[in-house]
Simulated assay, not measured.
Amino acid sequence: MSLAVVGVPAGAGWLQGERVMHRCGGILHYDDLEPCLAELLDRSALRYSNRVAAVDGDGRAVTYRDLWTEAAKVAGGLLDQGVGPADRVLVHHRNGFEWLHAFLGVVLAGGVPVLPDPTCSDTEIDWMAFDSGAVLILDGPLPEGVPFLDGGASPDELALLYYVRGYGGDLRGVELTNTNVLSTVEAVGHAMDLVNEPGRTVITAPLCTAVGCSVQLLPTLAFGGTVVAAGARGTRVPWRHLRASFPASRCIRGWGVAETGGIGLLLPSEHRRRHPRSVGVPFGGIEVALLGPEAEEGRGELLCRGPSVARGYWNNPAATAEMFDDGWFRTGDQVSIDAAGFVNPVAVRVS
């Protein structure tokens, strides 16, 4: 495809992390990331063992030590049931402690969590289990065994498999490697200054989505913060309601889909008044391009590439060839990009 690449002005560099150091195959990459998600989370659990890791909808709190103890027991139970390294396990619980124990248990067992679109029917859940080759569906009482932690995987191995809906309603499994996931964690941690202010993160999306898991949950746990998880599968909360409910909080507007690792564009609240229609500027090593007859004039289909962008769709080479090309992901969203590098939606989707 013919691209008109839109460079982001230097003024937007306030969102780019210092560790985005080099290009590999033309794509920006982070230096010195942990080799895999399991090792990152395990180090975090040891470092912040006495801090509160999560609070549920009833106000019950759990420390990092206790959360990891329960997750490691689930990992041991999965091992007893034959789950091995790189095996896919479908996690189908509501937001809350059970979901956290199930998800983290799969990670610590060396498996790959398969996370379904929250709108899926039971029939579609069964289909996703078949399509992904999942060896197990976790949707009831969790297995327990001797606490276990897998030795870890390599950066290029599959870490998460999100199932999302295409424009025609078909379900597609988005493949995210350890590098993809850890790049999202690093990008969000830098942009939100979680190293210095881990704070509390209110989970505003289902934990089975890229926003709920990769953007809100994992960076918070990686930097020693506290996640506040509601008991439901999660619903979208209007911006004004969030501001009214949490007046002292830092509210962030942005854009991202599972195929971009959940991130892509970010617009902190202090920039919203000057750019009321914008969904932000690229961050975390994400670069943007425009495709279409008006691309040179700053208007067209938004394309993204970067360290968090997926390598393709699971078991779906046709969709991969259609949506991914030379590192670029075709979002299908029509946008305009102004002189300051802010992306303004014409017609976008958010997932």
Rank of each mutant, 00 (worst) to 15 (best):
G332L: 12
V211W: 02
V215A: 00
A289S: 10
E294P: 02
C304T: 06
I203G: 02
V114A: 07
D122A: 13
Q16G: 00
E301N: 11
M1F: 13
R51Y: 06
L158F: 07
R43K: 14
P35A: 14
V83D: 07
V164E: 09
P116C: 10
D326R: 13
A230P: 15
V114Q: 03
W14R: 08
R200G: 00
A248K: 12
G96D: 03
V114K: 03
F97W: 01
P141Y: 00
F246C: 12
E301C: 11
G280I: 04
R250N: 14
A295I: 02
H271G: 07
C208H: 09
R236G: 14
R19Q: 14
V89L: 07
V181G: 01
L28R: 10
V74A: 06
E124L: 08
F246S: 13
T123S: 14
G225V: 08
S121R: 11
Y30V: 08
V227I: 15
Y64I: 08
A205H: 09
V257W: 04
W255D: 14
F148T: 05
G332K: 10
V343C: 04
L217Q: 05
G262A: 08
L149G: 09
V6A: 12
G224A: 08
T201Q: 12
V195P: 00
A134E: 02
H93E: 14
V211D: 06
H29Y: 00
N196L: 05
M1E: 15
A187V: 01
W99K: 10
N95I: 03
L290R: 15
G173L: 06
P247S: 10
C304H: 06
H190N: 09
T226I: 11
V227E: 08
A229W: 01
S2C: 00
S2E: 07
G57M: 05
I125M: 12
D122W: 02
D87S: 12
Y313G: 05
H190P: 02
M323F: 11
E197L: 06
T63F: 04
V185S: 03
V6S: 10
R240M: 02
E297G: 00
V89R: 03
G11V: 10
L160K: 08
D139A: 13
G166Y: 00
T260N: 08
A109C: 14
E287C: 05
P307I: 03
A71Q: 09
W314K: 08
V348Q: 06
L218R: 11
T320I: 13
Y64C: 06
G332F: 11
L207A: 11
P247L: 05
A191G: 04
A86K: 10
L15A: 10
F329R: 02
I252D: 06
W99F: 15
G327E: 09
P116R: 04
N50C: 09
D42I: 07
V348K: 03
P147H: 09
W127Y: 14
C208Q: 06
P198R: 04
N315K: 14
V107P: 02
R233I: 14
A229Q: 03
I337T: 12
V215M: 04
E287D: 12
E186G: 08
R51V: 01
L138D: 03
I137T: 13
W99T: 03
G152T: 11
P276S: 10
D66W: 00
R311W: 11
A61D: 15
G199V: 05
Q81H: 07
D117A: 09
